[in-house]
């Protein structure tokens, strides 16, 4: 009988258009990136200096690190709203550990990351095993982690008195690059390898793309999702470590609302909220857009309330453009 013909676009389109299609990223991402940089460069001469750019990278480190973990979660078609509170809880635990137990920078960092991973594990178990929508679970842990943080600190800041800790996670430099940037590069490199060259990456994409088909292909989708939540929590723990080192102290209310920046970065970066789609370099660009926006708006002296409004608006626009 008649042969079937696959519906495939013939390669007649221009290279630029094809590249944009094949990269799986919304054009919106690149346009907004370019527009932001040109706008701020024109608006303030300080913006495009090397020191300010490094400054942006340093300030964006926290968002970028957490965005990697949240991207894992969103690729599996779940969401993690708890990263801001997890950051605070882990940072506070590291600081308390150094103050009250052993004043060792490495053990403190391990404590912070372990606490973050535990919050992630709780998220994972509740969302995956007990099947509460992750939106609600992580909204709950957002509140719980913040509450515990306030409880253990008695709502006052915890001082960190360990020079190695300050140096390794915040103030040290290597070939002129600040420690938080180096940590970010390390995290990004690992996330990149895992997502694009790892077995786990394939499992994440398949689980988010069609959970039933992934299960019927022999993928343990529950484990995949749980691990994604744990990674997200652990990276929030690392971010908490950096926060504690930066200020030589940590306030229990730190990181409130930072999940907005993180999720905005991930969605702007072209990761589909419906799962199964997204690239690491998109998330890097998304994080930088958020960083540049924060930095530029501060340089321009925009009121913080306006900054919040702009960021919220941007998320909505990004989602509108990203939806298929």
């Amino acid at each position: 009988m008649t042969a079937q013909i696959a519906r495939v676009d013939l390669p007649t389109e221009g290279t630029v258009r094809r590249w944009i299609r094949e990269t799986d990223q919304p054009l919106f991402l690149y346009v907004s990136f370019a527009v932001l940089i040109s706008a701020f460069s024109l608006a303030t001469p300080i913006f495009l200096t090397a020191s300010n750019l490094l400054n942006i990278a340093n300030q964006t480190a926290l968002v970028t690190i957490m965005a990697m973990g949240v991207a894992f979660v969103i690729i599996t078609a779940e969401i993690d709203l708890s990263v801001g509170s997890t950051l605070a809880l882990s940072g506070v635990c590291a600081a308390l550990f150094m103050r009250d137990a052993i004043n060792n920078w490495l053990l403190a960092a391990i404590v912070a990351i372990a606490v973050g991973a535990m919050v992630g594990a709780v998220n994972g178990v509740l969302a995956v095993r007990i099947r509460i929508p992750s939106f609600l679970v992580t909204l709950g842990t957002l509140s719980m982690a913040r509450g515990i943080t306030l409880l253990v600190t008695g709502t006052s800041p915890v001082l960190v008195n360990n020079e190695t800790f300050w140096s390794v996670f915040a103030e040290g430099t290597f070939i002129g690059i600040a420690a938080p940037i180096l940590w970010t590069v390390l995290v990004v490199a690992i996330a990149w390898a895992v997502l694009h060259y790892g077995i786990f990456g394939r499992q994440l994409y398949a689980t988010g793309g069609n959970i039933d088909a992934a299960r019927f292909s022999g993928i343990n989708t529950r484990r995949v999702k749980t691990v994604a939540f744990i990674v997200s929590g652990a990276l929030a723990g690392l971010a908490g470590t950096i926060v504690a080192a930066r200020g030589h102290a940590i306030r229990p209310d730190v990181g409130a609302g930072v999940e907005l920046d993180v999720i905005a970065a991930v969605i702007l970066g072209g990761v589909s909220l419906f799962g199964g789609k997204g690239k690491i370099y998109g998330v890097i660009l998304g994080s930088l857009i958020i960083g540049i926006l924060n930095n530029g708006l501060v340089l321009l002296g925009v009121d913080p309330s306006i900054q919040l409004t702009i960021k919220g608006f941007l998320i909505v626009v990004a989602v509108a453009f990203a939806k298929r």
């Binding site: 077995i199 394939r202 499992q203 994409y205 398949a206 793309g209 069609n210 039933d212 088909a213 992934a214 019927f216 292909s217 022999g218 993928i219 199964g276 789609k277 298929r324």
Partner: peptide, 22 residues
Amino acid sequence: RWGLVLGHSIERNIAMANLPRW
């Protein structure tokens, strides 16, 4: 519903069921 991730490529769909091999 049970067989394919429609938005993914042929290669990704086949690989999804053969991850232990690769």
